[in-house]
Design a protein around this nucleic acid. Structure first.
Lengths: 348, 348
DNA sequence: TTGAAAGCGCTAACAC
DNA sequence: GTGTTAGCGCTTTCAA
């Protein structure tokens, strides 16, 4: 028994100080220590001082895991995104982080490949960690899978996707209208020969944007000359533009799936002697950082992702508190906003 | 007593299923359930099946907090950065996330304002969460403060900063040499009238880069014509360039503190009739995404932050395992690499 | 192969 | 004001 105690003690030295250590040193009970740690109400001024000092001395740091265990909550908001190095998702994460900080909550980030299984696992991991709030960007999981998950986790909200059954927990962008807005603008500028660069990824967003674009255009009796697919990055945009100018030299305006593709397209166009913003118009989508840095500055549709992320975080955090059961769902649908810069021009 | 039990039971229904629920349902002890959850060795095949089924049925998800408590480790790597929406730090986070995923570890992100107290608190919070590994980017905390923290947390590594006493836990970039490299290159191109745009933030990096730049230049008998300070962003670069062209029109080359400032400078320059890459050269620092998207494409010094972050994460993770006590510290110092693109030109 | 029991560090009654 | 105590959900000996 002696030996065991000694060993235990020895091991302890390597670990962090616990509430017991503080209690012993300060000659109080652990309850009292707990009270001063949590700024509890009934603690003698002198006692509090003494405990505080001991805490400082031995470098006591409360164990959040233990606390989470007994309180049944971890003050953590979980976030699922495909890739944090993508500026779009960085903005998303940043928005969530801002409201998390304001609410004294930590952000736990889980990245996924763009892959259903990875998405499922990422969410599961956050549930294991007992995140009471979750903001999930998922493109690959089925509606059913997401629904099941949502049922299990009341504080889970979906961002960038609309699922009717849980509409009150979806913060999303109307991609279809985005396409229409682009179409209308190009029409206003007088363009009759337009092309569209879309993403080859099999998710809804590009389809909806293209559909909105096409329909918006056909409303004014112009039809899309050609649709080029590609990876949704600069290179994809470059290749697509190549195809467009070689096969459809009559085109005077291009609507790209996102800013990266738009900028890739611009690069190809300029390299081939076109003056973007004079000879040809290019319009992007998202309005990420590069849209402002590019030359010519990119006309694009602003995806207010940071704002949406903040809203999503707020929602996720609030569901668990006072559940405002009359949410104004109409506020959850966002519309992209046209940002006119230099890459588009009035025809003729 | 009855009442209490009932109440307890009622509350339980709202919460997640626990190991006990599984045990009861499957008619085994919690020890057995634990074994199957952790793929323990000695469990009867039939028993395992039964337990697995029950787990699925009642949707059991182990509580990571409880596990962390008893195992005294949380399989979490903590990261401290000022602002995740900054592409530079997004890249840093992404690097860490990659190795975290590979090691089945979650990433806990803590952002700070650029402020000593916030940095301290961020780190403390991660210690509370019992992150066994930490990667910290801190510019405002003093060496002493960082040293104290490092002593308390063996798995803490510092990134983007060198502190001699814990050199074996610092992954850093030689900013001074970066400045020299820029100087040498500009000299090679024949420039004699050069300016420097530096950051007004009071941290070491800009000072070192400027010092390296100045000394590198004076080695070849050219002196820096003027040094403009500004916020380390596009706008700061714009203003600085304004000052340079109005006060020192003879300047033919500019070394900017970072890519954002460089691009701001380019923007002002072009707006004032200069052809960057022909009339005047601009060189940036970092090589973030925008350097490749800008027009002209930016010549810059690559800060291999993602690589460094991976190395930092690897180091932080390994310190706690087999402590390789003969680390090759020389590998921890990184050199920025010149990336020649279009914003610089041979003079004359 | 399985179960009983002792905690991990902490909070929250409840008692004094 | 302060202490005692019963867990939170889990892992891990030690017995059986």
């Amino acid at each position: 028994m002696y030996i065991k105690c000694q060993v235990t003690h020895k091991v302890k030295r390597l670990h962090m100080a616990t509430i017991k250590d503080v209690a012993k040193q300060a000659n109080v009970s652990i309850a009292t220590v707990s009270r001063v740690v949590n700024n509890g109400p009934k603690v003698g001024k002198e006692t509090r001082e003494r405990v505080l000092n001991v805490m400082r001395e031995i470098g006591y740091v409360p164990d959040a895991n233990a606390r989470a265990l007994v309180k049944q909550k971890s003050d953590t908001i979980g976030v699922v995104v495909p890739d944090i190095s993508d500026p779009f998702f960085a903005a998303l994460a940043s928005g969530i982080d801002k409201v998390a900080r304001k609410n004294n909550v930590q952000m736990l980030l889980s990245t996924t490949a763009v892959d259903a299984e990875a998405e499922q696992k990422a969410i599961e991991m956050l549930i294991e960690r007992r995140c009471e709030s979750l903001v999930v960007h998922s493109k690959k999981l089925s509606d059913e899978a997401l629904l099941t998950l949502a049922k299990r986790v009341p504080g889970m909200v979906i961002i960038d996707r609309y699922i009717e059954e849980i509409a009150e927990r979806c913060i999303w962008l109307d991609n279809y209208q985005g396409g229409r807005i682009a179409a209308r603008y190009l029409h206003t500028l007088g363009h009759k020969h337009v092309a569209c660069i879309t993403s080859s990824y099999q998710i809804e967003d590009p389809k909806l944007r293209l559909q909105g674009f096409t329909e918006g255009l056909s409303d004014v009796n112009v039809s899309v000359r050609c649709v080029e697919q590609g990876e949704p990055n600069q290179q994809g945009g470059e290749k697509a533009a190549q195809a467009i100018i070689s096969q459809h030299p009559e085109v005077t305006a291009v609507f790209a799936y996102n800013d990266a593709m738009a900028i890739g397209a611009i690069s190809t166009l300029e390299d081939n002697g076109y003056k973007v913003g004079q000879d040809i118009s290019v319009i992007g989508f998202d309005d990420v950082l590069i849209a402002r840095y590019s030359r010519p500055k990119l006309t694009t549709l602003k995806y207010p992702i940071e704002l949406m992320a903040q809203q999503a975080a707020e929602l996720a955090l609030n569901i668990n508190k006072a559940s405002d059961n009359s949410p104004n769902i109409s506020l959850y649908k966002h519309l992209p906003q046209l940002v006119k810069r230099e890459s588009t021009h009035l025809l003729g």
